[in-house]
Design a binder for these strands. Sequence first.
DNA 1: TTCCGATCTGAAATCGATTTCAACTCTCAG
DNA 2: CTGAGAGTTGAAATCGATTTCAGATCGGAA
Lengths: 350, 350
Amino acid sequence: MVRYTISEIAKLCGTSPATVSRVLNNPGLVAEPLRDRIRKKMEEVGYKPNPFASRLSSQSRWGLALFVFDILNPFFALIVRKIGHLAMEQRIPLTVCDTENNEEKERIYLDYLLDNKIAGIIFAEGISIPTIERAQQQTETVLIDRHYREGLISEVTSDNYMGGRQATEYLLQLNHRNIGFIGGPSNWSSAEERLRGYRETLEENEIPFRKEMVFPGDLRFESGVRALEYFLTLPEWPSAIFSANDQMAFGVLSKANSLNISIPEDLSLIGFDDIPVYNLYTTILTAVRQDIDALCTTAFEIMLSKLNGESAGFEDGSEESRTVIPTTLKIGETCSKYTGSPARRVQRNG
Amino acid sequence: MVRYTISEIAKLCGTSPATVSRVLNNPGLVAEPLRDRIRKKMEEVGYKPNPFASRLSSQSRWGLALFVFDILNPFFALIVRKIGHLAMEQRIPLTVCDTENNEEKERIYLDYLLDNKIAGIIFAEGISIPTIERAQQQTETVLIDRHYREGLISEVTSDNYMGGRQATEYLLQLNHRNIGFIGGPSNWSSAEERLRGYRETLEENEIPFRKEMVFPGDLRFESGVRALEYFLTLPEWPSAIFSANDQMAFGVLSKANSLNISIPEDLSLIGFDDIPVYNLYTTILTAVRQDIDALCTTAFEIMLSKLNGESAGFEDGSEESRTVIPTTLKIGETCSKYTGSPARRVQRNG
DNA sequence: TTCCGATCTGAAATCGATTTCAACTCTCAG
DNA sequence: CTGAGAGTTGAAATCGATTTCAGATCGGAA
């Protein structure tokens, strides 16, 4: 397992290291016969360039990082998988940072990556503003499903506003008028947009938006459980619930199940994400589908073009782009027409 | 954001680069006053060593990698999270490789990592033998929950055999005599051990082991679904099922649910792993618990000591260790005493 | 024939650290 | 007083690539 160096290859071919290096990085500069000879020799002895030497001399940076909020959440796990494969195809090392929404962890990861001259970072989480600004100054950044500030950082998001509308319109079509909404943490802009879609659709249909119909969740399963508990304390129960992500919707489903509230007969439920994994569980959730593959692919392409210096310059600040991926509504088994009958009396736990 | 070099620091302190380097790597060699002065200056200007330069000159390798079978499976997601944090604490970059049990992907990842002089690889999956041998020759390796060959590669596994026994003994105590087993892919040795525990426990209790009571799964949810379908084709249905992992057990649960087979009244079910996530779903699964934290921590420590060259030498081949972490049985809600009544007739789908 | 430019190649500097080796200063035993 | 040895420090080589710059070769236009 001896590794050859570029000068050894050069010696073997009776040429100079410079030429061998050119074959590697700029083959056009080397005449064909020599180039072929060098290539053959490299192949023959299994030459691999020393990655540290080349990065040192070419002054290049290193690898990509992906920040995710919670790797146990399949939405993020799918992102990790997809970005991981894309990076692999390009032979770019990818460091996955599972921050668990912890600012301290975020900071430590980021410091570390910047010290190590990371070439770029993709954020798929509600990262804090200071972190994001620091990253943005020192390396290339792209946000997935997160809005920062117009024109400052490239973002790829689903059309959360339209998604919010799609869900709400669908529920209205089913005659629901009393629709609960489960939101996300305050630093998660996507949920805000979904809420806006929900709210504006209601108002356009002359249904007053009521604050108490919004429960602030945290994206996790347990939030959904607590949300349903909360909604049941209201004098007037919602006949449908729109959750800002699937995990919380499944929390609702589970809690409803244990309270003997049947879905969709007693309560309609609609999620957001449409994670394939969840559909394996008995009930197929109706949900707004995000096109995770498209989100990832687009974000990754933007990152690549940044790495290749294709973001020409920053003269007009318009180098940072914002891409919006459309959402679609996937009809499952958790919504039904509201018949106007009052919600069935149910027993409460605890 | 200018980065200082070691010679600039040296100049600022009126000393030589060699001394500055020593402060970094071998502080004992530098007299205290000078050392402090240099440290203060580095602090002051925010000096960070160039990682490529130091690796090039010290001839060191780079980072760790973690291979997992399927990142969507929470068992592996938990491993990714834990190892990720451990690596972060040590400031070691970690590349996560989600192989999806695809040999081609395995190979590509591995080639790539070896070319990049990865310092070590932790495998948490049923990686193929050729891959593992190649890795082992060129870098440090540790296996999690996977057996290779005694004394050749360090391994950390749960006590799968005892886990298999624990589950089976528990079911026997509950009077079950007809116990189905859902296994794993053939290259996954842990499942073999669990099966051995199951089989030997049965035989010690003079219950004949029957081949048709073993269904070969693939660790995924769908396998559990198919397993239950299979068991229902048998002339004599099992009264209990022991699944080699939780995901397949949940497949059984889900399928049972849709077939109106109630668990645990009609069928007892026991899983393996005890992933916290799953317990959020309505039914709390009875399962053999693996101590994932201990698995990861131990594996990581072994890796660190290898990286620090503490595996003195290979003279007697005994440098590679095998650590076994005990399992415990967690009683949930999916097992009940077998009353001897014949399994209720159920309607079949499809 | 001469000269220019295009094409190709090699010598040498460079990237930013680490490490060897030698030199220098002190202390202290003989 | 001398010399050995410990403790400190700096000069310079080295790691393995990239890149600049200049020189060599060749074809074709004047």
